[in-house]
Amino acid sequence: DYYKILGIPSGANEDEIKKAYRKMALKYHPDKNKEPNAEEKFKEIAEAYDVLSDPKKRGLYD
């Protein structure tokens, strides 16, 4: 669930989505986080943001 990945409610607005994305992206960026699964988690976060930040894609997802 993209909302769960970003840690936001399904009714989140654009600003909340952007803030959550930035926070999670910094936390899991492969250059900052050396955990083995950090890169995979970072890709999931980027995919979630891509879908939820685009009103058309978000509409299809919801």
Rank of each mutant, 00 (worst) to 15 (best):
Leu6Gln: 01
Lys23Arg: 09
Ile8Arg: 00
Asp54Asn: 03
Lys18His: 04
Glu35Met: 08
Leu60Ser: 12
Lys43Gln: 09
Asp15Ser: 06
Gly7Leu: 03
Ile45Gln: 00
Gly11Cys: 06
Asp1Met: 04
Lys32Trp: 01
Asn37Leu: 12
Asn37Arg: 10
Ala38His: 11
Lys56Leu: 05
Tyr2Phe: 14
Asp50Val: 12
Glu35Lys: 05
Glu40Ser: 13
Glu39Tyr: 08
Lys57Gln: 12
Tyr28Asp: 04
Ala25Arg: 10
Lys32Tyr: 06
Val51Met: 05
Lys23Asp: 15
Asp31Trp: 05
Lys56Val: 05
Tyr21Pro: 02
Leu26Asp: 12
Tyr2Ile: 01
Glu35Ser: 09
Glu39Gln: 13
His29Ile: 11
Gly59Lys: 07
Gly59Cys: 07
Ser53Pro: 01
Tyr3Ile: 00
Ala38Asn: 14
Ile5Thr: 08
Lys41Trp: 06
Glu16Phe: 02
His29Tyr: 07
Arg22Leu: 15
Lys34Ala: 10
Leu26Gln: 15
Leu26Arg: 09
Glu14Arg: 05
Leu52Glu: 01
Ala12Pro: 00
Met24Tyr: 10
Glu44Ser: 09
Gly11Val: 06
Lys4Phe: 07
Glu35Trp: 07
Leu52Met: 02
Gly7His: 03
Ile8Met: 04
Arg22Phe: 14
Lys18Asp: 11
Lys18Trp: 13
Leu52Pro: 01
Asp50Thr: 09
Lys32Asn: 01
Asn13Ala: 05
Asn37Phe: 09
Ala12Asn: 01
His29Trp: 03
Lys19Ser: 12
Tyr61Asn: 15
Tyr2Ala: 05
Lys41Leu: 08
Lys41Glu: 13
Pro9Arg: 05
Lys19Leu: 15
Lys57Val: 02
Tyr3Leu: 00
Ile45Met: 06
Lys57Tyr: 04
Pro36Met: 14
Ala25Cys: 14
Tyr3Ala: 01
Val51Asp: 03
Asp31Phe: 10
Ile17Thr: 03
Ala25Lys: 14
Tyr49Ile: 03
Ala20Pro: 00
Glu16Ile: 04
Tyr28Gln: 05
Tyr3Gly: 02
Ser53Asn: 05
Lys41Arg: 08
Pro9Met: 08
Glu40Pro: 10
Met24Arg: 07
Lys18Gln: 14
Gly59Glu: 10
Leu6Lys: 00
Phe42Tyr: 09
Lys41Asn: 15
Glu40Cys: 11
Lys34Ile: 02
Glu16Arg: 05
Glu14Asn: 02
Pro55Ala: 09
Ala48Asn: 00
Lys23Gln: 14
Pro30Gln: 10
Ala20Met: 04
Leu6Asp: 02
Tyr21Thr: 02
Asn33Phe: 09
Ala12Gly: 04
Glu40Val: 13
His29Lys: 12
Glu44Met: 10
Pro36Ile: 13
Asp15Thr: 05
Ser10Phe: 15
Leu52Asp: 00
Pro55Cys: 09
Asp62Gly: 08
Leu26Gly: 12
His29Pro: 11
Gly11Glu: 09
Asp54Gly: 04
Leu6Pro: 01
Glu35Leu: 13
Ala48Glu: 00
Asn37Thr: 06
Lys27Tyr: 09
Ile8Thr: 11
Glu47Asn: 02
Glu44Asn: 01
Glu47Gly: 03
Phe42Ile: 13
Lys41Thr: 09
Tyr21Ala: 08
Ser10Ile: 07
Phe42His: 14
Ile8Ser: 01
Ala46Asp: 06
Asn37Met: 14
Ser53Trp: 01
Ala25Trp: 12
Gly59Ser: 08
Ile5Ser: 08
Val51Gly: 05
Ala12Leu: 02
Ser53Met: 12
Ile45Asp: 01
Tyr49Thr: 05
Leu6His: 00
Pro36Tyr: 02
Ser10Glu: 10
Ser53Arg: 04
Lys23Phe: 07
Ala20Gly: 07
Glu47Ser: 05
Pro36Cys: 15
Asp31Ile: 12
His29Gly: 13
Arg22Lys: 13
Lys27Met: 12
Val51Arg: 04
Lys34Arg: 10
Ile8Gly: 00
Ala38Gly: 14
Ile45His: 00
Lys34Tyr: 06
Pro36Glu: 13
Glu40Gly: 12
Asn33Ser: 15
Gly59Tyr: 02
Glu39Val: 12
Asp31Thr: 13
Leu26Ser: 13
Glu44Ala: 10
Glu44Phe: 10
Lys43Ile: 12
Glu47Ala: 05
Ile5Gln: 06
Ile17Trp: 00
Asn37Tyr: 06
Ser10Ala: 10
Asn37His: 07
Phe42Gly: 08
Lys32Ala: 04
Glu14Gly: 05
Lys56Ala: 09
Met24Phe: 03
Glu39Ala: 12
Tyr28Gly: 08
Tyr61Pro: 14
Asp50Leu: 05
Tyr21Ser: 02
Glu40His: 14
Lys34Ser: 13
Leu6Val: 01
Ile5Pro: 01
Met24Leu: 12
Asn33Val: 15
Asp50Ala: 08
Asn33Ile: 11
Ser53Asp: 01
Pro36Lys: 11
Asn13Met: 06
Ala46Val: 03
Ala46Ser: 14
Leu52Gln: 01
Asp1Ser: 09
Asp50Trp: 02
Lys27Trp: 11
Ser10Thr: 03
Gly7Gln: 13
Ala46Ile: 06
Ile17Leu: 07
Arg22Asn: 12
Lys57Leu: 02
Ala38Gln: 11
Lys57Ala: 07
Tyr21Trp: 07
Lys32Met: 01
Glu16Gly: 03
Asp15Val: 04
Tyr49Phe: 15
Lys34Gln: 15
Glu40Ile: 14
Asp62Asn: 06
Lys57Asp: 04
Ala25Tyr: 10
Lys19Asn: 14
Lys4Trp: 03
Lys18Tyr: 09
Tyr21Leu: 01
Leu26Trp: 07
Asp15Tyr: 04
Lys19Ile: 14
Asn13Cys: 11
Glu16Pro: 00
Ala20His: 06
Lys56His: 04
Tyr28Glu: 09
Lys23Val: 15
Lys27Gln: 15
Asp15His: 05
Leu26Thr: 15
Lys23Trp: 14
Asn37Ala: 14
Ala46Met: 12
Ser53Ala: 11
Lys43Cys: 11
Pro36Gly: 11
Asp62Met: 10
Pro30Tyr: 07
Lys41Pro: 05
Ala46Thr: 13
Phe42Met: 03
Lys34Cys: 10
Glu16Tyr: 03
Tyr28His: 07
Tyr49Leu: 05
Pro30Arg: 12
Phe42Asn: 11
Lys32His: 02
Lys4Thr: 09
Lys19His: 07
Phe42Asp: 04
Tyr61Ala: 09
Tyr61Thr: 10
Tyr3Asn: 03
Pro55Phe: 10
Asn33Thr: 15
Lys27Leu: 11
Leu6Glu: 04
Ile17His: 00
Pro9Asp: 05
Lys34Leu: 10
Glu14Tyr: 12
Asp50His: 08
Lys34Trp: 02
Ile8Pro: 00
Arg22Ala: 15
Asn37Gly: 12
Lys56Glu: 12
Glu16Cys: 06
Gly7Lys: 05
Lys43Met: 12
Ala25Asn: 11
Lys4Ile: 03
Asp54Glu: 00
Ala46His: 04
Lys41Cys: 07
Leu6Tyr: 00
Asp62Val: 08
Arg22Ile: 10
Lys23Glu: 15
His29Gln: 04
Ser10Tyr: 10
Tyr2Cys: 03
Asp1Trp: 07
Asp50Met: 12
Pro30Asp: 13
Tyr61Gly: 13
Ile8Ala: 07
Phe42Val: 08
Ala20Asn: 07
Pro36Trp: 06
Glu14Val: 11
Asn13Asp: 02
Tyr21His: 07
Tyr2Arg: 01
Ser10Pro: 06
Ile8Gln: 02
Lys19Arg: 07
Met24Pro: 03
Asn37Val: 10
Asp62Glu: 05
Lys56Thr: 10
Lys56Arg: 06
Glu39Leu: 15
Lys56Phe: 03
Gly59Gln: 08
Leu60Asp: 14
Lys27Ser: 11
Ile17Gln: 01
Asn13Trp: 00
Gly11Ser: 07
Met24Cys: 07
Lys19Pro: 01
Tyr21Lys: 02
Lys27Asn: 15
Met24Gly: 09
Leu60Thr: 13
Lys57Cys: 03
Gly11Leu: 04
Leu26Val: 15
Ala25Gly: 07
Ala25Thr: 13
Lys19Cys: 10
Ala12Phe: 00
Asn37Ser: 12
Lys43Asp: 05
Ile8Asn: 01
Glu16Trp: 04
Pro9Thr: 08
Pro30Ala: 14
Leu6Trp: 00
Lys27Thr: 10
Glu40Trp: 11
Glu14Lys: 02
Lys27Asp: 12
Tyr21Gly: 07
Pro30Phe: 09
Lys23Tyr: 08
Ala38Trp: 12
Ala48Tyr: 00
Leu6Met: 10
Tyr28Lys: 05
Lys18Ala: 14
Ala25Pro: 03
Tyr61Ile: 10
Ala48Phe: 00
Ser53Ile: 10
Tyr49Cys: 07
Lys23Cys: 15
Met24Asn: 03
Asn33Gln: 11
Tyr2Met: 04
